[in-house]
């Protein structure tokens, strides 16, 4: 097991191994998302309070969950990179940022569109859940801007890792914001005392969407890490061989 992990952390092995698993992640994720979308839109009963507007949950919750998951991956990878100087972990942190930013954007937009018919407003300044999620978008953008501003990859890795770690306090704040302060945002639906607050016909599509989005996110992340690895190893022999033998874009 350790041998496998060690081997995987070596850039050329990672590059080859990830190419094999990305299609599987993308395939399984797509199937789950197609099922979840269909079942969520057409099979699940409408909510007794929210009517059919509740169906936005099927894209909003996976996006919001992954926006925080991406930040956690980014912060943990950055920490591992700082402490143990594992090359691959800085590549993972750098790759997670743009995806995290997109999923945060998606969570904010779908939340806003859901908020309009339910709360009567697109946005509420000062609401803890909304504001802390928006702050995370700015953290991602700041992280990417900082990296872009530093030409030296090693220095960019270190500086951006510190920013990622400082910003990490925001993740639990987002998570617990609906419990700590009063918020327009509803409380947890799935993981809560007394079990999920929805019938299985509503719950299964949601779980499929969360799992499916996670697989798709995994495929996207691995793809971005491959690009990072390629760039960082551009002077290595294996990259030269890969590029010159015309393995082509892949």
């Amino acid at each position: 097991m350790w041998k496998f992990i060690h081997k995987l952390a070596s850039p050329p092995h990672f590059y080859r191994f990830s190419a094999k698993i990305i299609p599987w992640f993308a395939g399984v994720g797509s199937i789950l998302v197609i099922y979840g979308t269909y079942a969520g839109l057409f099979l699940a009963p409408s909510d007794y309070q929210q009517g059919d507007a509740f169906r936005i949950i099927y894209v909003h919750v996976p996006a919001a969950y992954l926006s925080m998951m991406a930040y956690s991956i980014m912060a943990v990878s950055a920490a591992i990179g700082l402490i143990w100087r594992i090359k691959l972990s800085h590549a993972v942190a750098a790759a997670a940022a743009p995806l995290g930013a997109w999923f945060t954007f998606l969570a904010l937009v779908t939340g806003s569109v859901w908020g309009k018919p339910m709360w009567g407003t697109w946005w509420e300044w000062g609401d803890p859940r909304l504001t802390s999620e928006l702050l995370m978008l700015f953290l991602y953008i700041g992280y990417m801007a900082l990296r872009a501003a530093i030409d030296d990859t090693v220095k960019a890795d270190k500086a951006s890792a510190v920013l990622a770690l400082v910003g990490a306090v925001n993740v639990p704040i987002i998570h617990f914001s609906v419990e700590w302060w009063s918020s327009l945002h509803q409380g947890p639906t799935i993981i809560r005392e007394g079990g999920p607050a929805m019938p299985v016909e509503m719950l299964y599509p949601l779980l499929a969407m969360i799992l499916g989005f996670t697989f798709i996110f995994g495929a996207l992340l691995l793809g971005r890490v491959r690009t990072e690895v390629l760039f960082r190893e551009r002077r290595a022999r294996w990259v030269r061989e890969l590029v010159l033998t015309g393995a082509g874009p892949g």
């Binding site: 409408s46 009517g51 059919d52 507007a53 936005i56 909003h60 779908t110 569109v113 309009k116 018919p117």
Partner: peptide
């Protein structure tokens, strides 16, 4: 149920 524009745009 009247929420089509919101649901589909999301």
């Amino acid at each position: 149920g009247g929420y089509g524009a919101y649901v589909w745009s999301c």
